[in-house]
Amino acid sequence: MIVQKSPYPYWFVMPAAVVFSVLFLAPTLASLWFSLTRWDLFSAQFIGLENYRQFLREPFLIQGLINTVIYAFATSATKSVFGLLLAVLLTSGIWAQGFLRAVIFFPVLVSTIGVGITFSVLMHPTNGVINVALSAIGIPGPGWLTDPALALYSIILVDFWKGLGLATLIYIAGLASISPDYYEAARIDGATRTQMFFRVTVPLVRPATVTVVTLSLIGGLRSFDLIWAMTRGGPGFSSDVLASVIYKQYQAGFYGLSTAGNVILFLLIGLIILPMTAWFNRKEVDL
C-alpha cells in the first residue's frame, strides 16, 4: 500500500482544535473533578458528592432547577406554536409581508440586556407603561416582576417576544421547502384550509420544528442574560434558574458548588436533548 500525502492535511484542523480543547473541552472535563471538591481556585479539597447533595437539599437550589425546566419548555412550546402560525401568515402573501417579517425578526438581533432593562421599566408595577395602559381600560395590572408567583412567567413572556422572530424565520424557510404540488394535490382531493394545515403543513414542516424546538430548548435551559437583567433571580429566589444560581455561587466564592451546578445543567441538557433528538430521528425514518 502506497501512502500519498493528502491534499487535505490535518494541520488545518490544529489551530481550531487547540483553542477548542484548551478553552472548552478541558474545562468541561475538569468540571467533573472540581464539582467534587471544595475549591478556591488555588487548592481543591475532595469532598465527594457533597456539592451535589447540597444542591438537592437547599430549597432555593431545587427551585432553580425546576424554574430552568419550566422556562425552557414554556419558551420552546410558545415559540414553536406561534412561530409556525406566524410563518404561515407571513407566507400567505398578505400586505407588507416583508416589512412584517423584518419587524418581528429585529428583536432577535438586539442586546438581551437592553431588552431586559427596557421591559423591566415597561413592566414597572405602578408607573410602567403596560400597567398604566391596562388600568386605563379598567384592568388592575399585576406586579409583573415584583410578584414572586409571576416574575418567572413575565421573563418567559419577554424571552418569547425576543425569540419569536427566529422561530418564525426558521419556519418560513421550512415552509419554503415544501413543494406547492402537495397543496395543489390536497386541493384537488378536496381538503379545507384547516385540513391542509394539519395534514400537509404540520407533518412536512417537521425538520423546521425539530430545529426550533431543539434550539429554543437548549437556549432556554442555558438562559441567563435576560433573567439577570430583569430580576437577578428575584424576588427572593422565585425566578432563579440554574445559570443564575451558578453565577451567584461563583460570586459568593463557592467555586466547587458553582461547578457542580454547571455539571447538573450539562446533565440536564443531555437528558432532555439526546433522547429527544434520538426520537426525532427515529420518526424521520417513517416519513
Binding site: T28, S31, W39, I218, L221, I246, Y255, T259, N262
Partner: peptide, 26 residues
Amino acid sequence: VIYAFVLAGLMIPPAVVPTIWILQSV
C-alpha cells in the same frame, strides 16, 4: 470525533469556573 465535538460545542454550557482557572494559568 470532530462531529461529536461540534455537537458538544453547540449544546454543552461552558464550565465557567474551570475555564477561569485555565485562563488564569495561561
